[in-house]
Amino acid sequence: MLGILVVSHGNLAQEFVDVASRILGDPDGGVSPVCIPWELESSAAKEKIRKMLKKVQEKSEGVLILTDLFGGTPTNLAMTLYQPGKVEILTGMNLPMLIKAILTRKAGTPLAEAVALLREKGQGAIVSVSEVMSPEGGEEG
């Protein structure tokens, strides 16, 4: 089964995982948060991500790392652990993407397919309310 790491600035990763798990009624959703405190030195932060990645890799077939912001330190550090086809990274996570990731993991979807699907679903779940409220209505995401 796919392993999932959520890596972020501050406590965002933990909060994302808590909220998604609460919505799905699943205690941890099989997702491991890695929070990078603002004051943490970058080598220590990288080590924190690496340790969690190793732990998740031991019990998974492929690992997907979801990060909060492309160009930010958590993403930059995660990128140093990128292994094509084994450890993939999606940046700019949002809650719909994480919810879908938890369900995709449970469904046994392989890594490459999961990356493409979650990118599509995460982007598709961004909705302008004005479009939905217009007489023509919106499209299903």
């Binding site: 799905l24 719909p96 919810i99 879908k100 679903k121 919106g138 995401g141």
Partner: peptide
Amino acid sequence: NQMCADAKSILGVLT
């Protein structure tokens, strides 16, 4: 009256 969703997809149902 506005749209249709697959009831097996949470993101679909939420839309």
